[in-house]
């Protein structure tokens, strides 16, 4: 453990309350509240707006981690492109059938809550608590810069990168096929 965590154990400061903790607390509170709102709101448009708030707070959390490139990509791709797609489909379906999107409250919510609580406790006990000592970042300074990310994508991960581009092409063709009236 000592050899693995090294500097992390040496610079451990769990009781320190200051700017970073406050920033994280605010961002995490926004993320948690909007995440719960996505599930709890009956109206899907409100869920979508909560999801946008959640994505933005996660992007800011990426910035606090030093991953500025991925924070920017998060804003552009998720809050920009994917949420526009969601709201667009919501608009189409809502206009066509205002009564089609009703929710019912039943016992399933209780079961789902119990399942998720069990999952959360399991993950925290098994994976998060053993990592409690890691308080200082170990990655290189250039972690998260566009240059490091681009170099990794085009050297080490070039085959997955090409596969992802093929997947996106298949997605484009598939969604055009699905959107056509007659195939």
């Amino acid at each position: 453990m000592e050899g693995i965590w090294g500097a992390g154990v040496a610079q451990l400061a769990p009781t320190q309350v200051g700017g970073p903790m406050l920033l994280f607390a605010v961002l995490a509170a926004v993320a948690v509240a909007s995440g719960v709102g996505v599930v709890a709101f009956n109206s899907p448009v409100r869920s979508a707006l909560c999801l946008i708030a959640n994505f933005l707070s996660l992007a800011l959390l990426y910035f606090t981690l030093g991953a500025e490139m991925l924070g920017i990509i998060q804003v552009v791709v998720y809050t920009g492109a994917i949420m526009v797609l969601f709201l667009f489909v919501l608009m189409l379906l809502n206009l066509a059938a205002p009564g089609a999107l009703r929710e019912s409250r039943d016992l399933r919510r209780l079961g789902a809550g119990a399942l998720a609580a069990a999952l959360f406790v399991l993950v925290v006990v098994q994976a998060v608590l053993p990592l409690q000592e890691a308080a200082s970042p170990q990655a290189a300074d250039y972690y998260g810069t566009p240059m490091a990310l681009g170099r990794a994508l085009f050297t080490e991960y070039v085959w997955p990168f090409e596969l992802a581009s093929v997947l996106l092409l298949v997605g484009i063709v598939g969604s055009i096929l699905l959107a056509k009236r007659r195939v």
Partner: peptide
């Protein structure tokens, strides 16, 4: 600007569990 690792992991686990509920 960085919080300790376990806070990020706990937040991620909570959001994942919330998604499971949904």
């Amino acid at each position: 600007l960085m919080a300790p690792l376990w806070m990020y992991l706990a937040l991620g686990a909570f959001l994942f569990a919330t998604g499971v509920v949904g």
